[in-house]
Design a protein around this nucleic acid. Structure first.
Length: 270
DNA sequence: ATGCCAGCATGTTGCTGA
């Protein structure tokens, strides 16, 4: 069990939990986070490999999965309870959000998989982009109404790289979905509305390039290094003072069976 | 900017990812 009052929490878009089960188990054995939030599990709940995680020590699992697409999960060494009655974002009935309470740590963990938004950065021409903007707007309103009410860690693949050095070329990506001004302003507005601190930029200066995702389409992801910081960990106001460290596990992008996203980790006093 | 890859189901092609 963790030292009392210290929590290690990770988020990782795994792009199929079944295909990459061995990599997740290796990560858990190496880092031993108290909590791991997964996105793009791509598994219905009945097909999720609960037993393997339970046997490894992550006995408490919350799931919201569906066939083929999306899917979020929280694996925990600490007891948890799913927060009931969370919104059905944009009325889609998809599986992009899961909130859990951790009574032992006295906080709520919000795990999000924000829509990617398609190729065309125009909500009138592209319904997927309209969906993404609506999702961010609903989330902004949701957390504005709750800011400060509960100690909250919000994580996930938010599919937006908000800062100039969250992408390999700010200028060249201004028209590319994930870094357009309407998205970056929207994401920062959501962050402000919930009075969240970006836990990773708390440690890494905004002048420094930092990515969590590299496309599969580059032959040599490390050499081209055309990444984006799409995966985030935010903490609500009163938790920011307890932040101890943050890391992006870039090396997890290596290997033939890698996800295109890498894990992001924080440690904090709670 | 393109890349032309990767996972999964609808399945030897199409949808989605970002």
């Amino acid at each position: 069990m963790p030292r009392r009052g210290r929590l290690k929490l990770a988020t990782w878009n795994i792009n199929s939990v079944r295909l990459r089960l061995d990599r997740v188990l290796a990560f858990l054995a190496e880092e031993r986070p108290d909590i791991l939030c997964l996105q793009e599990t791509k598994a219905p709940d009945e097909a999720f490999p609960r037993d393997a995680f339970r046997d490894a020590g992550w006995k408490h699992v919350a799931l919201r999965g569906m066939k083929s697409y999306n899917g979020v999960a929280v694996l925990s060494r600490l007891p948890l309870a799913i927060v009931p009655d969370t919104p059905d974002w944009v009325g889609k009935g998809d599986c992009r959000h899961l909130a859990v309470e951790l009574p032992g740590a006295g906080l709520v963990v919000e795990n999000f998989y924000v829509p990617a938004g398609g190729d065309i950065a125009d909500p009138d021409a592209n319904p997927k982009f309209a969906h993404k903007l609506a999702f961010v707007a609903e989330a902004t309103n949701h957390f504005a109404a709750r800011s400060g009410a509960r100690r909250t860690v919000l994580v996930g693949d938010l599919n937006i790289a908000p800062l100039e050095n969250d992408v390999w070329s700010h200028r060249q990506l201004l028209d590319v979905v994930s870094h357009t001004p309407v998205e970056t302003e929207g994401l920062l507005g959501w962050q402000r509305a919930g009075k969240f601190t970006d836990a990773v930029r708390h440690f890494v200066p905004e002048t420094e390039k930092l990515y969590t995702w590299w496309s599969y389409r580059n032959r040599d992801w490390r050499a081209s290094d055309r990444g984006r910081r799409l995966d985030h960990i935010w903490v609500s106001g009163d938790l920011a003072g307890g932040l101890k460290s943050a890391r992006v596990l870039k090396d997890a992008r290596d290997g033939a069976l890698a996800s295109d996203h890498v894990p992001v980790l924080v440690e904090l006093a709670v």
